[in-house]
């Protein structure tokens, strides 16, 4: 390996890419972890209803249940097309 190659590979630093990817996937999986079983079905049905009026893609809708003490919040996020 030449002197310059050494710095090139050093710059690439695949470990930091790994860390970033992990932070994203782990954060995502933690929020979906303790979700009730009915959530995917609920999401599908909401998608069907919204599609009666606006055309959206599958990934434009997000449903999530958050528990705060004794109160649960159902969060519904829909991204409408421009």
């Amino acid at each position: 390996m030449s002197f310059f190659d050494y710095f090139k590979t050093k710059k690439q630093n695949t470990a930091s890419i790994a860390k970033e990817r992990l932070q994203i996937i782990v954060a995502h999986e933690r929020t979906t972890r303790n979700q009730p079983d009915y959530l995917p079905q609920l999401q599908q049905e909401l998608l069907d209803v919204i599609r009666k009026y606006v055309s959206i893609r599958e990934e434009d809708i997000q449903v999530q249940l958050d528990k705060n003490g004794n109160c649960s919040v159902l969060e519904l996020n829909v991204t409408l097309p421009e």
Binding site: Q12, T14, A15, A18, K19
Partner: peptide, 17 residues
Amino acid sequence: RVLKGEMLAVEDVKEIL
């Protein structure tokens, strides 16, 4: 390999988990 940036460092794994 951690020093070369090829492997996650112990601090990284600790931080994530």
